[in-house]
Design a protein around this nucleic acid. Structure first.
Lengths: 204, 204
DNA sequence: AAAACGTTTGACCGGGCGGTCAGGATCACG
DNA sequence: CGTGATCCTGACCGCCCGGTCAAACGTTTT
């Protein structure tokens, strides 16, 4: 019996509402800047009721981060060593950009955690994340060595994909302020630009 | 008589210490997550003494942001329409990367403000920043139209320079966690990578 | 219907928050 | 040295923070 099944309807509904509200607040103000009252108000619950579902502020934050890490790694996991090198990397770029467009709050939550020195997920970064990046970096290095893509540092290539895609979620306000209202959806322009950029960079 | 001259030695020393300490604390925890006690302790002053030099927490934060905006825009201002296009853009990339390496706390302070929706500097973004980017984007668009650089969206080109350089300051912890301790200084690798990337992207 | 269980709340707690204030210490300068 | 301006501090304020608890309210089960 999964923990999801062992909960009543009400529990599922309220836990969802709390995590949704907490995501909104934590992603905007960071852990210390967020307050339980704010989260409770956003979720439409009283503060004591909120603490009936989660034992502490920490616990809510940890639950959010834990769920996030997998979503975060998934697009890189899908990079297929057997696929066409340029298309595989472009696919990864597109998947990350879609994540930024559809889950900007999750991206900002993650950014906040890293900005604060990653006190709660440093082990994950040095463990899971590093392992996965090491693995995929070797795949990319192999492609470069075989001349199937241009010669490039695979680690910084991956960093640049993170930086470029997350920028459109984390710095959304700035991007929109600079582009103004007319110049169309930032994400459409971003996709065209990124495909062009990485194609020129990688094509041997 | 400038305000700098109208202050005593002690005032200059203590205001410096406060702003330095506040930069440390605000850049790590954001505005709401930072506390005056923390800043006072970091600066080696008592809290009431801190409030003798600045009227409020807000005022300290505003002073930091105001000083920051100019430093931030300067590297783009220096982009010379009369220079060699590729070299001009590479120079801009290098200047921004140096800023990330030498002033990571300033970069994180800025990132925190944007993440929170830029409540205090939105006017600056829509005014000064937008104006400067519009101006330089036209310069770059001109270069592209004349075939002196490859055809590219100038706005997203500028965004990509911001994203890539700031990433190494803002996400420093993550970059170092992935690279491990041996693989050398991230910033040296970053410079080589970015020069290669933008050269391939821009050379017609 | 009533026992049993799950859910919600108002009142409350100690502590830390941003900020104030009266007065004491220290300094620059005649 | 004196004295006025500048600098600094301990004690304090009202408020909001994360969290607790007993009691009341709903719902489900028997």
């Amino acid at each position: 019996m999964s923990p999801e099944n062992s909960r009543t309807r009400i529990q599922r509904r309220n836990r969802r509402a709390i995590l949704e509200a907490a995501l909104e607040v934590f992603s905007q103000h960071g852990f210390r800047g967020a307050t339980l009252d704010q989260i409770a108000a956003e979720a439409g619950l009283s503060k004591p009721n909120l603490l009936y579902y989660f034992p502490s502020k920490e616990a809510i934050h940890e639950t959010l981060l834990a769920g996030l890490m997998e979503t975060w790694l998934a697009p890189l996991r899908m990079l297929d060593p057997a696929g066409d090198p340029v298309e595989e990397i472009l696919g990864y770029v597109r998947r990350k950009l879609v994540l930024s467009r559809d889950f900007p709050r999750e991206s900002r939550l993650f950014a906040n955690e890293i900005l604060q020195g990653a006190p709660r997920i440093k082990p994950s970064l040095e463990g899971e994340l590093k392992a996965l990046v090491d693995e995929k970096a070797q795949v990319i290095a192999g492609w470069a060595a075989n001349g199937r893509i241009a010669d490039i540092d695979p680690y910084h290539l991956i960093f640049s994909i993170w930086a470029l895609t997350q920028h459109y979620a984390d710095f959304d306000v700035q991007v929109r302020a600079v582009l103004g209202t007319e110049r169309g959806d930032p994400f459409e322009g971003a996709e065209r630009y990124l495909v062009t950029m990485f194609t020129r960079l990688l094509t041997p």
